[in-house]
Design a binder for these strands. Structure first.
Lengths: 255, 255
DNA sequence: AGAAACGTTGACGTTGCGTGAAGGTCAAGG
DNA sequence: CCTTGACCTTCACGCAACGTCAACGTTTCT
């Protein structure tokens, strides 16, 4: 029979059959005088076997290996491996659907915000407007919120909650102002260490612990000198970045 | 920050970042005098949002559409659609694993055969050797066995079981011999109709029903004239193919 | 100063075919 | 005889989401 007939018989396209020839999955049959491929029933059986394996999800070159190894042990190995792979995929899809459901629920409650509702509520209680550094800080928090797992996000926002009390807000505004003042200062300005110490004194304990943990957990976000990545973002001046360097060093020493 | 820093911060490759620029998922930032891209924290936030959607399985151009539509209704639609798609995938994988398990169990019992155990057992009881047509018939049965669903295969083999009794075997050998004799005959040879009638008389009822059903169910395997695909396979002579044409016509008339 | 490690753009490789393009072959019908 | 339409042939691009050179300039460390 000709290629179209073979293809219709097994239920694939002629392109697929030729593709399998090209990959060596199916032997090239004899040719008729006009150059057409001339298939026998054996070829249909072979092609059907290839299709069965392919529909199970085996890659075509795996199928070639299996068929070349002339049925026996190799097939079992590959099938078991494939099954494990599929099990993994099932898990991955389950996880994705879970996250998707969470994201959908969240979108229902809060359809127009880029951050989680919890973080949005915290941001409303933090200083804003006027201070350049306040804007920077809000962006940082938004970034962490966006990259965190859905489960982590709420806990993280709650950690920041103490900073939203009226007194903390006032202190926060003062500190932001002092950071802004350092925009043009040199890294060894005496106000740097002073400010770092004041911040360290007023941070809730849980936040200090979290900041230290994040340094250990994600070394990528800090360079070798322990300098905060914000230094890289060109948003902060060297003196401002130095405040955080000193602050982190203090926290490490006290812990 | 520079592209490598941004990439490390969000946890992707620099190639990915540039790819997103190319697709318009992430705006191109300002350039430094040396041509390097200069990123701000906003870009990290944006990139992280893109990644979250991508990890959920959204296609990149869908993400672009969603982000362009400036969060609102569109997002929900796409997410719901995606969820439905994932549910479908879960089902598909579950099915594949089921078939795989069946195939593995089968391979355990019968590790070196190309056909199912049931069909192998039937083939052992059918005529073989000597007759060209016997070989052809065995190949046809193997083909059907290979292409059928695992559930169908056993039932199909059982349908053939009556042909494996010693008496049926003897009749079968005689019939094969008479078909072989027609190799050089003309399609209107009187032996054709005679042989078809004999076959029709001796076939079990269930097999006749099945043959008729397969004609209805898979019209592709027959051409417009109702001629058996074997005519196409070049294995049979015109007279031999005619036997089956007449046989099928008889079966249709009697039903 | 030279090497290592970045950055730039450009382009090909991957998977499993779909889908032409450009042309040859074959059976049927006017 | 010529056309039409349905086959066949090989060649080769297209898809998704990047990975991976290539060829070259820049920055940074030693």
């Amino acid at each position: 029979m000709k290629i179209g007939e073979l293809a219709a018989l097994v239920g694939v396209s002629t392109r697929t059959v030729r593709h399998y020839h090209h990959l060596g999955l199916l032997p090239e049959p004899e040719r008729l005088p006009n150059g057409y491929r001339e298939y026998r029933l054996r070829d249909a059986v072979l092609l059907a076997r290839v299709r069965r394996l392919a529909e199970l999800g085996l890659a075509l070159d795996e199928i070639r290996d299996v068929l070349a190894d002339d049925q026996g042990k190799e097939l079992r190995e590959v099938l078991l491996e494939l099954d494990a792979d599929l099990a993994g995929q099932q898990e991955a899809i389950r996880l994705r659907r879970e996250r998707l459901a969470a994201l959908l629920a969240e979108a229902d409650l809060h359809p127009d915000s880029a951050v989680s509702p919890a973080m949005a509520s915290v941001l409303r209680g933090l200083p804003s407007g006027g201070s350049k550094f306040a804007d920077f800080d809000r962006e940082m928090l938004a970034l962490v919120d966006t990259t965190a797992d859905p489960g982590e996000r709420e806990a993280f926002a709650e950690l920041l909650r103490p900073l939203t009390t009226p007194e903390a807000l006032a202190r926060g505004e003062a500190i932001y102002a002092r950071i802004d003042e350092l925009a043009e200062a040199a890294p060894d300005d005496p106000r740097v260490a002073e400010l770092a110490a004041d911040i360290a004194d007023h941070l809730p304990e849980e936040m200090k612990a979290m900041m230290l943990a994040s340094v250990d957990g994600h070394p990528d976000t800090f360079n070798e000198n322990g300098r905060w990545l914000s230094e890289m973002s060109l948003t902060l001046s060297p003196a401002q970045a130095e405040v955080f360097h000193v602050l982190m060093t203090m926290l490490k020493e006290r812990s």
